[in-house]
Simulated scan of single mutants.
Amino acid sequence: MSAEGQQARHVAIIMDGNGRWAKRRHLPRVMGHRKGVEAVRELVRSLKDTQVECLTLYAFSSENWKRPEDEVDDLMDLMRKFIKSDLPEFIANDVKLHILGDWQALAPDIVAMLEDALEQTGKGSRTLAVALNYGAQAEIVSAARKAAAGGEITEESLAEHLYTAPLPPLDLLIRTSGEVRLSNFLLWQAAYAEMIFTDVLWPDFTPDLFKQALADFGDRERRFGGR
């Protein structure tokens, strides 16, 4: 497939580097997370200037519970504030929220806020998918069990039970902060996705850098195993 003019419909980002951003500035880790939320906000606002139909963000993995309790509490509080403050903007900008992961295991008040946000944004034309309490290996196991319960396990039947089933196929995966690994994120979906790893820490990842990544994607040739 020629890369000329190709557009990424679905982009996923592993938002890494909040802690290092804060450490370099001799600030508490929570300040890095707060700055990271601001980066999310600016990026979501900029989507209207792109052809991206779905942006998926790795917000909280199932392994993140291993972090210090006070850091987890800070992250949950930031999540509450983000949902409350940005929901009206999502609605105004026709953004539909979609959640990946075992999010219903979160605190009851967060679950209620997310359920409300899902309902209020359900008719949006552009999707913001957020991975919360998410792990790709657990997702694949769960999807395989559901597929087996319905009959034969095939690639198609398994894919139908993934959290991303309603979303376009993943085109591009970006990871910030210089780490070069997937960290149990969208393992199935990333099979033929293009990947970009940047040294930029997440709080410094701007809409302009995102558009540069989209341009990079447009210059690539995707063969999907062919020649």
Rank of each mutant, 00 (worst) to 15 (best):
R175A: 02
R145Q: 10
L97P: 15
F217C: 07
L97R: 02
R24L: 08
L182D: 03
W65Y: 15
G101D: 00
E160G: 12
L55H: 10
V95E: 00
T50A: 15
F90R: 03
E42F: 05
A193G: 10
L173Q: 00
L162R: 02
D16S: 12
L186H: 00
R175C: 02
N133H: 08
G32K: 05
V11M: 04
I14Q: 02
G218A: 09
P203R: 04
A117I: 04
E152F: 04
L182Y: 00
K96C: 13
A138M: 11
P108Q: 06
V37A: 13
Y134R: 04
V141H: 10
G178M: 05
A215T: 15
S85R: 13
F60H: 11
W65I: 12
G101Y: 01
P28Q: 12
V72T: 12
T176K: 03
A12I: 02
E179W: 08
P88H: 12
N64D: 14
A105N: 08
R80M: 13
P203D: 09
D109T: 06
H98R: 07
K81N: 14
G135Y: 01
D102G: 02
R80F: 09
K66L: 15
S177F: 01
A144W: 01
V30G: 10
L114M: 11
S46C: 09
E139M: 04
V72P: 11
V200Y: 02
I83P: 00
Q7N: 11
K211G: 08
Q7R: 14
N133S: 11
A159N: 03
A136E: 02
K23T: 09
I83K: 03
F60I: 10
R227V: 10
G124Q: 04
D77W: 14
E152Q: 10
N64I: 13
C54W: 01
R9E: 14
G17A: 10
A117R: 01
W21F: 06
V11T: 12
R45S: 13
T56W: 05
K81Q: 15
Q6I: 15
L87M: 07
R223T: 11
A148L: 12
Q189Y: 00
L201E: 07
D199M: 07
A92W: 06
H161D: 03
R41K: 11
T121R: 08
D70Q: 15
I99H: 00
I99A: 00
S46T: 05
T127D: 01
Y192C: 03
W103L: 01
R220Q: 13
P203L: 05
F60V: 12
W202N: 06
S157N: 11
L187S: 04
P28E: 15
V200A: 02
T127F: 00
M31F: 01
E53T: 13
E89F: 05
A92L: 09
S125T: 05
K96W: 04
T176L: 04
L97Q: 04
D16F: 06
D16C: 15
P203V: 07
E194L: 07
R45A: 13
D216W: 05
F210E: 08
T127E: 03
N93Q: 10
A144V: 11
V141F: 01
V111W: 04
R223S: 09
P207K: 08
G5V: 13
C54M: 15
R25A: 07
